[in-house]
Design a protein around this nucleic acid. Structure first.
Ligand SMILES: [Mn+2]
Ligand SMILES: [Mn+2]
Ligand SMILES: [Mn+2]
Ligand SMILES: [Mn+2]
Lengths: 221, 221
DNA sequence: AGCTATATTTTGAATAGTCAAAACAAAACT
DNA sequence: AGTTTTGTTTTGACTATTCAAAATATAGCT
C-alpha cells in the first residue's frame, strides 16, 4: 500500500516535531494533532493505525515516535517538498514567501521521474529557498545546528542561512528587511527587557522580537 | 465547496465522452463508469450527487450530460491537464508518451498561480503535445474537426496534427514511425479487407490497423 | 492523600468514495 | 406476447478520515 496524502502529512509533521524537540523524547499526541490540524481523538486513531503499519512506535498517554520505516518515508516527502519549493522559485520565478502552500499539495503527487528531473535541472541543490536542507534520494538528511539571531555573537558579520517558519507575511517581511538567506548582517544588540533584537541589515537597522529572531538562523563568517 | 479530485475526474470523463459521441446524446452510465474505472453502481451514486450539485443533468436509465456549470469546471480541469503536459514536455524534457499519467495527478493540485505561470512561460500554447487544444483561462475551447488517416485523401501530403489516444506504447510507436504531430506524411492506400492503412512517413512505409489510423488526425496542407 | 487541571483515549456518529451481488427496467429477439 | 440479453439501479457492506463530547488517565498542587 502506498501511503495516502493524509498519512504522508502525519509522518512529515511527526518528523518536524521530532527535529524541533530534543530527540529521544516522544512527541505528545496534542502536539501532533495540532501540527496536522485535527482534533486530538483523530490523531490518536490515526497513530494507532500507523503503529499497526509499523510506521511509528506509540506509547499510550505518552507519545509517538517515527519508526525507521516511518522516518524513511517522512524524509522522502520532505525531499519532494523542498525540491519542489526550490523548483518553484528557481525555475518558475515564484516568491519564496508563496511556494510553501503549493509544495504542500504537490509533494503528494509528483512522480519519482519528475522529482529526479527537477533535482537534475536544479543541479542537485543542497538547500531549499528557506535554507532547509534537501534530503538525498536515498534518504540522507544533513542537519547542521546553526546559531540564530538570538545566540550569535554581537557586532560580528554573519550570514543568514535558514528561516524556520513558512508564514508568508513573515517571509515577506524578512525579504523587505534584507534578511533573506545569503545576506550578510550583524546583530548590534539585544534587549531582553524589551524582548527584542536589533540587527544591521544592509544599510538598515531593524528591530524584531526575540521570537522572530529565534527563527532566523545564521552562520558566522 | 471546491470539487474533489474524484469529482473532477468524473466531470472530465464526461466531457471527453460527450465530445467523442455525437453531442445531444446523453452519455450512458456504463460508458461513464468504464471511463472513470469504477463499478456501474458507483457511477450511478456519484452521478446522482453531481445532479444534486447542479453539475450534471441525469435521466435514470438513459444517461448523463454536463450542465453548463459542469462544462465550465470540466474545461478548467482540461486546461490544467493539457498545460501541464505541454510544460512537462517543453520545460522538463519529458517524453510525450509519458506525460499523461503525471498530468492526471497534477491537474488536481496545481494552483491557479502556478498554472498561469506555466501558461506564460510556454507562450500561451494553443495545443498540448498530443495536439489537443488547450482551453483558455475563461473556458473557451476550440474544437476543429480534423480528418484522420482513415478519411483523408490518398497520395496527398498531409500533416499529423493530433493523436486521440494517450496509450504510452502507442505514442512511442508513432514516434518511432515518424508519425508525431507536426510531421508530414502521405496516406498511400487503404485495404478494407485487411483492415489496414498504408502511409508514407519520412522515408518509411508503415502499415497500421484502421482502429489505430482513426486515432491519428491530420490537416491537409 | 485528596483534589484539580490538563492531556489523552473512547465512543458514537458523520461524510466521501467504493464494491459485489440482487433486483429491476429496457431493448432485442423469437 | 413471451423470453432472453443487456444495462442500470438498489441494497448492504466496507475503508479512510474526521469531529464532538464523554470517559479516563496523568500530573500538579494543596
Ligand atoms: Mn502536504
Ligand atoms: Mn522550505
Ligand atoms: Mn485526474
Ligand atoms: Mn494530451
Amino acid at each position: 500500500m502506498l501511503p495516502s496524502s493524509t498519512v504522508e502529512n502525519y509522518l512529515k509533521a511527526l518528523h518536524q516535531a521530532e527535529a524541533s524537540m530534543g530527540n529521544e523524547t516522544l512527541v505528545p499526541m496534542g502536539q501532533l494533532a495540532n501540527a496536522v490540524g485535527v482534533a486530538p481523538g483523530t490523531a490518536t486513531t490515526m497513530v494507532k493505525a500507523l503503529a499497526e503499519s509499523g510506521l511509528v512506535e506509540y506509547e499510550p498517554y505518552v507519545g509517538v515516535r517515527l519508526s525507521s520505516a516511518g522516518t524513511r518515508l517522512a524524509t522522502l516527502v520532505l525531499r519532494r517538498h523542498r525540491l519542489i519549493e526550490q523548483f518553484l522559485v528557481e525555475v518558475m520565478g515564484m516568491s519564496w514567501a508563496d511556494v510553501h502552500e503549493d509544495a504542500e499539495q504537490l509533494e503528494h503527487v509528483v512522480s519519482d521521474r519528475l522529482v529526479e528531473r527537477m533535482d537534475a535541472m536544479l543541479g542537485h541543490p543542497a538547500v531549499d529557498p528557506h535554507g532547509d536542507p534537501i534530503p538525498t534520494a536515498d534518504g540522507a538528511l544533513a542537519d547542521p545546528d546553526y546559531h540564530s539571531l538570538l545566540t550569535c555573537p554581537l557586532s560580528t558579520p554573519v550570514t543568514v542561512t535558514r528561516v524556520t517558519d513558512q508564514n508568508s507575511s513573515f517571509l515577506r517581511f524578512l525579504e523587505a528587511q534584507e534578511l533573506k538567506p545569503g545576506q550578510s548582517i550583524e546583530v548590534e544588540n539585544r534587549n531582553s527587557a524589551a524582548d527584542s533584537v536589533q540587527v544591521l541589515a544592509g544599510e538598515r537597522r531593524v528591530t524584531i522580537g526575540t521570537n522572530a529572531a529565534s527563527k532566523v538562523l545564521i552562520e558566522i563568517l
